[in-house]
Design a protein around this nucleic acid. Structure first.
Lengths: 351, 351
DNA sequence: ATGAAAGCGCTAACAT
DNA sequence: ATGTTAGCGCTTTCAT
């Protein structure tokens, strides 16, 4: 008994049994015009009797189409999970399938991309970009590329992203509306998107007449980097802070709370991304949400337009983010001049 | 200017540029013996310059082999991310590639499986199983199946999993070693693995002479279910609790802390999985870690054995878990008879 | 309406 | 070590 025994039924087998040519069988199987009802009937019957199923690979090889969209994403990023979820839904509605290729700590973007290219995807949707401009150029020469979620400036690739500047505007305006003035920004370091969010911060502060309060603390996209930034903050804390993303904000929350600051009473915090972490009750982060559903729909639409050669629409599509208020922001209470109550009751020094 | 002009780079193109035959290029690309180092070098270079990627469809069509392992996983599960990471590494070492198919809230296991089957994978590695026995049987008839991480009892599929019972033994023994006696278990409801962990809990409690203290609270695999279980616990809290998994434990932590219980001083908590959440400083959960690296290596090895028709080894491989102590467990302090200190200082009632 | 024939890009015999 | 050749199962001109 072996698993390998099955011999596969081919078009030729069906043709032989129906007494017609393979070409005719092909026409019947694809349900395209060009065969008489009588032939159709005989071919169908022969196929059914033989248990014939067309070979997708061979069909693709010949016709040159796969209806496959390659997706490069990071398994470690919760937000990428949300995006992949949306992409599946959008692709399905459009009659395309997804071919996933993950980046892991040991498998970098280049490997992930090269893996998915072997699947002969008709377009690539890339959720993260560390590639150089040159690599992107090279890639875009081989296949239409849509970058999802990152503000890559590149004439050869399409971009679908949320409006990072506006997102931080929302964060700052929210805090200003709560009475805060001393608002810092913990940035994302060299991460893609970080520059836009910094800029959004500066713009919003300025627009609110707070250019004198502007202060940007170097952070990064991970919990550890948010924690490090928090330590810098503690010397002379602001009353509110907008953080590059939720992961970083989580690390920051950790440190400031352990240092005895109460959130949001002593410090209001706004994150970015609205990832699964932010939802957790214990973190319950006020944050800026990207519209994953809209973005994924747009990315798939753009990819298909590129594949099917629609007239070139704009190379960049920007969606508006929105604020999700949870429990890490609160109105500024009177001047914090009086000594803080018992906020250091589990600080580092014993009484 | 249209994008559709791109002509695919084929083996023949590479051969032409390198000035050799396509057969030789094929040899080099497959990294099989039969080419001189000099040729290898030239071919590689030509391929790189042209941006060549082998066409999997054509390769399969010709050789009848894909060297592709299908992986069905959940995008939302952090631990699945860890497993996928390990699978990539293991597959790569074995000369196989992975074809990922994700389960999302809208795309269930059946769809994910059927999607990956059309890629003509030679074996399937399934990270979660909600399928019925009948579905599994049917699936296993089409392709070798390895279930990773779940204790599925099925004669037709291979299983690689950690020892859930022993894992909970470790958790209970750890707590008992810290002096705890009143130890509850929040289970995973109907989740796969939940029964084993419940059983492990009962066994360990009994072995420690604590059968009288056994109490199992109904929970589930998500934060929300952990939180719900926590509310049940609050009426008459134990001094320690082992929870089905880290996600659930996180929800539980949230509720008990907001209710004014200090962790670990008032309540020690042990999770399961050691997922990314558990590492977070602010959660910093003591937990039972599954050896993802070993498990993924084993799963890939088993899958390949099945493909290549090795003599049938045992159908189940079980790896030992280990305890990772972080900061949610602590020795039991004297009898909790005196009124709890100021543990309710951020509770619901103003002083 | 139907069939003959030429490949799609690749691998595997079989040469050399 | 390298090249030649013959397909894998199918679709697609181009005949008829």
């Amino acid at each position: 008994m072996s698993r390998t025994g099955e011999t596969r039924v081919t078009l030729a087998d069906v043709a032989a049994r129906a007494g017609v040519s393979t070409a005719l069988v092909s026409i019947v199987m694809r349900e395209v015009p060009g065969a008489s009802p009588a032939s159709r009937q005989r071919v169908r019957q022969a196929a059914a009797e033989l248990g014939y199923h067309p070979d997708r690979q061979a069909r693709l090889l010949r016709s040159g189409r796969t209806r496959l969209l390659g997706v490069v994403f990071g398994v470690q990023y919760a937000f990428h999970g949300d995006l992949v979820t949306g992409l599946y839904a959008a692709a399905e509605r459009s009659g395309y399938e997804l071919s996933l290729s993950a980046m892991t700590p040991q498998r970098d973007e280049r490997r992930a991309i090269s893996g998915v290219l072997s699947e002969r995807c008709e377009a690539l949707i890339v959720l993260s970009v560390n590639s150089t401009q040159a690599e992107l150029t090279e890639l875009a020469r081989q296949v239409p590329v849509v970058v999802l979620g990152r503000n890559v400036r590149h004439r050869a690739v399409d971009v679908v992203r949320n409006d990072d500047r506006q997102g931080v505007h929302l964060a700052v305006d929210h805090l200003v509306g709560l009475g805060h003035r001393r608002i810092f920004h913990v940035d994302g370091g060299r991460s893609p998107g970080s520059a836009d969010r910094r800029r959004g911060y500066r713009e919003a502060m300025t627009r609110n007449g707070l250019e004198g309060e502007i202060r940007i603390v170097t952070g990064g996209p991970t919990e550890a980097e948010g924690a490090a930034a928090a330590r810098l903050l503690l010397d002379d804390p602001p009353t509110a802070v907008t953080v590059f993303n939720d992961r970083s904000a989580t690390g920051l929350l950790d440190v400031v709370r352990h240092a005895g600051l109460r959130v949001p009473e002593d410090l209001s915090v706004v994150g970015y991304d609205d990832d699964r972490l932010a939802h957790l009750g214990y973190i319950n982060l006020t944050t800026i949400a990207q519209d994953a559903s809209a973005m994924t729909k747009l990315a798939v639409t753009r990819a298909i337009e590129l594949i099917e050669g629609e007239p070139d629409a704009p190379g960049e599509t920007v969606t508006p983010p929105h604020l999700v208020q949870r429990s890490t922001t609160t109105p500024l209470t009177p001047p914090p001049s009086s000594s803080p109550p018992s906020s250091r009751d589990h600080g580092l020094l014993p009484p």
